[in-house]
């Protein structure tokens, strides 16, 4: 007899719900990566480090300045966004004409620098960060007790993802961004200040990562290594969804979170590998990704 026939429905539903929460993180991070790749043609390896930086800043705000969660939820992405703008102007700016591998190497280098600094400052053991008092406790969903904080994470991240999607797909500035993704030179020849648009896009993309980092801080240990653990999965999500596709990144992120949750119930040993298995299959069957267009 197959073991899955004995899975109690509440266990299944609760794993799916928790998977959805994880998926929300995947969605937010891969969305930022997709937007950056679309316009800059840079595979931003530093995304995980900047996500981590967002969480560490939230922790630092609390411990050094007594600044609470809600304030840091805004301030931390702002600071990381500005750091991103500096990185783009100072470093990335020079390599757009070159092959993708240079962008990947450069951002890998940036990652090592940021993680190294954080490691020497805080070590590798986690720093505890408490959820704000408003969001402590849990709600009975019938099949599980869902921690209120996780419910908030789900709502907040899906809202941010949809707002980003709306901005890019439905507004005038978004149409510059979409057109710029296809042919930045021609958009610039219409008089649009594409260089500034590129800088701001990178700033926005990494601010999104920092926002996810602050959201993650009370759920996971804040640690200099937290980005490393996540970034590889995020890359897999982006590859599966298709590089440069906004909706693709969101849907794939959520779906893979749920799938991971499902795997945890059916065959827990595979739960950390399933994403990569799917990635391999997608690369064989549809190299451009589920939602991707060939560039």
């Amino acid at each position: 007899m197959n073991p899955e026939f004995f899975i109690p429905i509440p266990v299944l539903l609760s794993q799916l719900t928790l998977g959805l929460v994880n998926g929300a993180f995947y969605a937010m991070l891969s969305l930022g990566l997709a937007v950056i790749f679309g316009l800059l043609n840079v595979i931003n390896f530093a995304h995980g480090a900047l996500y981590m930086l967002g969480a560490v800043l939230a922790w630092a705000g609390m411990n050094y300045f007594g600044v609470g969660y809600w304030t840091m939820l805004l301030v931390s992405p702002l600071i990381v966004g500005i750091i991103g703008i500096i990185i783009e102007r100072l470093l990335l700016h020079w390599i757009y004409e070159l092959d993708h591998i240079y962008g990947l190497l450069l951002t890998l280098g940036i990652t090592l620098v940021i993680e190294g600094i954080m490691r020497s400052a805080y070590g590798v053991s986690g720093l505890p960060y408490a959820a704000p008092s408003e969001l402590r406790g849990a709600t009975d969903l019938g099949f599980m007790f869902l921690p209120n904080y996780r419910a908030w994470v789900l709502v907040a991240s899906i809202t941010v993802c949809l707002a980003t999607w709306f901005f890019i797909e439905k507004t005038k500035v978004g149409s510059y961004l979409r057109a710029g993704t296809e042919n930045p030179k021609i958009v610039e020849s219409f008089g649009v200040n594409v260089p500034v648009m590129i800088t701001l896009t990178y700033g926005f993309g990494v601010a999104l990562a920092a926002f996810a980092g602050v959201l993650a801080a009370p759920m996971m240990q804040v640690s200099p290594l937290m980005g490393q653990n996540l970034i590889i999965i995020i890359f897999a999500v982006v590859v599966i969804g298709g590089m440069g596709s906004i909706m693709g990144a969101i849907v794939t992120g959520l779906a893979l979170g749920v799938l991971e949750g499902l795997t945890k119930v059916i065959y827990p040993q595979a739960s950390s590998t399933v994403v990569f298995l799917i990635m391999a299959i997608i690369l064989l069957v549809r190299p451009a990704g589920l939602f991707g267009r060939d560039k």
Partner: peptide, 15 residues
């Protein structure tokens, strides 16, 4: 012509 934009969006794109 941009494939991610409709005909009208293409027309209205240049500011």
């Amino acid at each position: 012509i941009f494939s991610s934009l409709s005909c009208e969006e293409n027309l209205l794109l240049p500011p």
